[in-house]
Design a protein around this nucleic acid. Structure first.
Lengths: 190, 190
DNA sequence: TATAATCTACCTATTGATAGATATATTTAA
DNA sequence: TTAAATATATCTATCAATAGGTAGATTATA
């Protein structure tokens, strides 16, 4: 993302916020103009079409999320605690009244280019792999039961996060998500 | 929903399909006109604003879903099997390339009237209560462990369904959702 | 005839997008 | 070291298409 200049990043910041709160089809170049303080034509200069914007936005988001995951891994060596930290990230997003960007874009999948769809799959796979690694670590540390299928459990934890987030945001109740993720961790404990 | 005539129902059918595939903000009255074969002005006759349309659409959807739940309950007296049947309903939706209507609307929550938001909460609560009842039954039948918190587990199962559906649809892989729900049921087995 | 349903015709606002002018840096060549 | 050339970034002005919505005429039905 080093190739994007300051203005382009500010545009993505606003687009990202709109996407996570209202959805990708719920804001216009004019909305971006009003908030960034640069004309719509200038935004088209950086992102010729809205689909280009979607792609750059999701790429930047994935990069940042990946960095967050690495950061958790570096700070926390206990598998189970890593999973709990991830849940906290999701809970915090709900607290801001937002939804996961990729979850949001996933709902608009049919109006987005194939390149974006592909990135969304990458995103989900990236988290799933990270979760699977944390579970494996948990098993090695004797905190997690060996009787589970690691890949399926990783998918299951991710699904709980995304779905719990969706419902918790609707209810405006972050604790709803927290309770769910905690329960999953209890269920897979040794 | 008895007060709606044939045309109104056909409009809702198309709106429902668009909502579950593309999202509520991704279709117009003109789209409905083209598919239903009646002018946009006639659609405005039944649904003065698009928000009115959203409300009627979600009300009808909830009624139908409620009927499905009742139908499962009537046909299946084993708690665990009821839960599995519900999962199959969700898997079938993914097979059609669709997402849960209320999950879809939940992502557009900020551009929808309060009345719709309220209905979405009702919807999630309705399923959660139904799931909780099935779990209770499962416990009574000695199929489900007593050590779980029923309400939280119900929320957890619902979240897995919604989130798993979202991801499975993105991957175009219905089996992904099936694997997740099966795993949850295994985890709560006695 | 009165009501319900549908139509034609139109409106205003907004959408994503483009053309072309202009200003400001940056690089290149004399 | 200037001066010219080029690239970058922003602007004004505008476009055709589409959005949701309305007024009022017309047709079908009870």
């Amino acid at each position: 993302m080093a190739e994007l200049n300051n203005t382009a990043h500010r545009v993505l910041d606003v687009a990202e916020r709109y996407t996570q709160t209202h959805g990708f089809n719920a804001f216009s170049y004019k909305d971006l103009q009003n908030e960034v303080g640069v004309k719509t034509s200038s935004i088209h200069y950086y992102f010729p079409t809205k689909q280009d914007l979607a792609l750059k936005m999701v790429e930047r988001y994935i990069d940042r999320f990946n960095a967050s995951l690495n950061s958790i891994s570096n700070e926390q060596s206990i598998g189970l605690k890593r999973l709990d930290k991830l849940a906290q990230v999701y809970v915090d997003v709900v607290k801001q009244g937002k939804f996961c960007m990729c979850g949001m874009l996933a709902s608009d999948i049919l109006s987005l280019p194939e390149a974006v769809k592909s990135k969304l799959c990458d995103f989900f796979q990236m988290i799933e792999d990270w979760i699977a690694e944390a579970i494996e670590l948990g098993i090695a540390q004797d905190d997690v039961t060996e009787s589970i299928d690691i890949k399926t459990t990783a998918a299951h934890y991710l699904a709980s996060l995304e779905g719990g987030m969706l419902i918790a945001r609707t209810k405006n109740e972050p604790a709803y998500l927290k309770a769910i993720t905690t329960e999953v961790l209890v269920l897979i404990k040794r």
